[in-house]
Write a protein that binds this DNA or RNA. Structure first.
Lengths: 204, 204, 204, 204
DNA sequence: TTCTAAACGAGACGGTACGTCACGTCTTTCC
DNA sequence: GGAAAGACGTGACGTACCGTCTCGTTTAGAA
């Protein structure tokens, strides 16, 4: 737009032969991350990513045929930084710590914007929907499923309820993400208690 | 200048004075409904709505400045048809019936696609986000809030838990909608039980 | 997104790499010529040119940022066909022959309509005005200037009068063009005589 | 545009019965003058005139069916202020004085812009062309024709050359107007001499 | 006095064009 | 064969005007 194409230090990246150039890949991912972090879903365009990365559009489309693929790649790379797995031997505390960390991660890294973009994209194309449902979700909710499984092993919840509780947890987190209300950390604990099957409010 | 008025044998809708023409409004809404139902969020364009409605784009933008406004209008109009309020004096049954009706409504009317579009749009523009959060949500979740309030009055749940449970319910419903899994009605009851704070699985 | 590539049985012009495609350029120019010839200044739109050329609007705007540029391109291309330079060793005859040829050219090729369009456009935007004055005029009146210069060398007119006579000639030709009176060739000779500084009418 | 609808002192102009309201006419003409003076041919729109005049578009179209009519009306009204008829008993001086006055008038009143607009409009629609040629031109060049006729009576020029010289004069003045070069008054006299059939440069 | 006729403002209406942006595809040229 | 570069056709975006229309109001003159 008003982005000068970046001086680029005179160097021009080029092919390294008949295989993927990691520099190109890194540049693309970095540019995509920066862009989605800056402008969000609207304002994210392959053209602009190519411009910022100093990459050809063909290169991007070769490795990431759809925006969904790009968003997943961004999320995955960022997730390495990540969210620690708590282990308090108590489901409510585990979930509360984990959720709090995750929301902070979403707020402070482009990953949050990428996930919002991925979900938005999934409302329009079936490829993105499948990527979200079949490739993204199972992998990215494994941690919480593990915590729920452990809690079941400890007898805190029923084994049969694990999937329902997992859905509730995902739905709740997405709901906050999608409505831009990740900042309200205060209420997390009581909702986690609801999911765990408890109320933190004494039965008066 | 040069515009031949076109024979247009049929009939041409025109202004009825300095005020909104209900025929134009109806045509636009009908076209928008049809289009979003047919093509979903991607493939929904103001141009195409105008084309199908036989309306000028200006007319559409006059009454619906953003796509979000159009989606809300579609949803609102369709919602009149609607989802009955159950009254079983039992929270789990109320929620189960209501949710089942709602999902059927989402599947069988363009409203479902419109809501998906609204949520997607909200990921890109802050106007849409505000419309979703401040204009759409409170009004559209009032029914469930009423059911929860009634249950609290009956002593089934704590008053303090109402908002948490409402969030869980919305999050869960959206999650299913956004992942295209509204068809799995079977599991609704057990999830509603979780939200109500019960497990339908006996503690073995 | 969603764009089916369209069967398009025939053939579709496309990019030939990182450089201007001469086929596209030719198609655009041909369409523009045809359109301005058919409809004149009003009725000339970039949209319609794109439609007829089977070209994208972007392609047109890339090479011809304004309508003025397009008009100049049309004129220039057509002008190659052109108007022969007379050489009768007599200013009045030279001017008469040349002007007659030029008016015929204007009447029989889209170039005439293009020039009318260029002048009209120049009344609205300063870019077009500059293009007309600085890019179009000097080059396109060089022939007449040469004829006047030659006449001065022969002693038929004063060197100091060349520019004035050139202005008179351009003004007169434009006047006829702009008022749609290029058909009256009969009077050309006597006006050219006036410009040359003679009267063809005997001093009675 | 960013024009607040004008305080309007609470008063609102309205109909004064089954006949033209001179106030409305004046307001429209004033607004049109102001607008064409400010923005030129491009940027002149009936919508904007209506807005500034506080008039309905219907009112404007009733009295001025085309832009050409509006431009002529502006020119005519302004022309009342006007350009004095010189009488030096010498054609070159008469023409020089008159032309100088006229160009100053064109530069300092919206009339100049209106004429440019009228000519531009005439390149697009045949109604405007006819208005220009048959309604505007004869009336507006009568003064110069009179001066030429008087000169012929004095024996300065041939009667048969009057029309040719008139065309040269109109063409030259329009040429300067249309190329935005009315400021160069210096050269007027020598061109007028050329038209008169003299050269101010001594035959060396 | 009542009625009719036309002008007036307002602004909605179906359109067309504007100029820009993004899409995904295609070639060429260089490693 | 990977990669940068960037042109290509397509089509949506949101805005501006076009010229037409209907409305409700106002006034003057005719009945």
């Amino acid at each position: 737009m008003i982005n000068k194409p970046k001086p680029l230090a005179a160097k021009r990246r080029t092919s390294i032969g008949s295989r993927r150039n990691p520099e190109a890949e890194a540049a693309v991912l970095a540019a995509a991350k920066e862009l989605v972090g800056e402008k969000g879903y609207a304002g994210f365009s392959v053209d602009e990513v190519a411009r910022r990365a100093g990459a050809g559009k063909t290169t991007i489309y070769r490795w990431y045929p759809t925006k969904a693929d790009l968003f997943i790649a961004i999320y995955t790379e960022e997730r390495a930084v990540s969210v620690p797995l708590p282990n308090t031997k108590n489901l409510v505390d585990d979930l509360t710590q984990y959720t709090t960390s995750l929301w902070r991660f979403w707020r402070s890294h482009p990953a949050g914007a990428a996930l919002r973009g991925l979900i938005a994209e999934a409302q329009g194309t079936k490829e993105a929907l499948e990527a979200l449902r079949d490739r993204f979700l199972p992998e990215r909710t494994a941690d919480v499923k593990d915590m729920l499984t452990a809690a079941a092993a400890r007898g805190e919840i029923e084994v049969e309820d694990i999937d329902d509780k997992l859905s509730l947890w995902v739905g709740f987190s997405w709901f906050r993400l999608l409505t831009g209300e990740l900042h309200q950390e205060g209420g997390i604990k009581s909702v986690m208690a609801q999911i765990a099957g408890l109320s933190i409010h004494p039965t008066s």
